[in-house]
Amino acid sequence: MIEIRQPEDALYAFQIAWNGHDMESFEALFHVDATFVNRFGHYVRGVSAIIEMHAPIHATIYRDSTLKNELIDVVPISDDAAILHFWSRLTVGAAHPAGPHAVDTLILTVMTRQDGQWRIKALENVTLTNPRTGEAVLRQGGGL
């Protein structure tokens, strides 16, 4: 588990927990009452619901997946709150029904510090798509 000392540490901690398919470390990223919107628009509230949404896919279709995250920006709101935007490339393997492929998403997180601990209060994940066709596209350029 990576300690989140500043808000931008969250995207690396998220990446490491995902790539290790480590639901305990993934759970530790979020406040108990956090919200999560996945790339398909599924909204859940509470860390238990976030883990319930992710544990089954990490045991099945995403068991051989990896993420690579790239920070876009950090927008401080106060000493105890910040908004992060980051690109995330999800690469899935043979375990996925559609076979190996990659998807780029843009993630927005609201980070808050409570009791001296930075955690994710809200996260929303949006798939990068072609607005004319709705097809998922990979981002050109950048480090991903």
Rank of each mutant, 00 (worst) to 15 (best):
E8I: 02
D9N: 13
A10D: 10
Y12L: 13
A13N: 08
F14T: 06
I16V: 12
S25D: 12
F26L: 08
A28N: 11
L29N: 07
A34W: 04
T35P: 04
T35A: 09
N38G: 02
R39L: 07
H42N: 07
Y43D: 02
Y43V: 05
S48H: 11
S48W: 01
A49L: 06
I50E: 04
I51E: 01
I51T: 13
I51P: 02
I51Q: 02
M53W: 00
A55F: 00
A55K: 13
A59Y: 00
T60C: 00
T66C: 03
E70S: 12
E70T: 10
E70P: 01
V74I: 13
V75A: 08
V75K: 15
D80A: 04
L84I: 05
W87L: 03
R89D: 04
L90W: 03
G93M: 14
G93F: 11
G93V: 11
A95D: 13
P97F: 08
A98K: 14
G99D: 08
G99L: 06
G99E: 06
P100W: 02
L108P: 01
T109A: 14
V110K: 13
Q114V: 07
Q117P: 00
W118C: 07
W118R: 09
R119G: 12
A122W: 02
V126L: 07
T127A: 15
L128M: 07
T129L: 12
N130R: 08
R132M: 08
R132A: 07
R132H: 06
A136T: 05
Q140W: 01
G141M: 07
G141V: 05
G142Y: 10
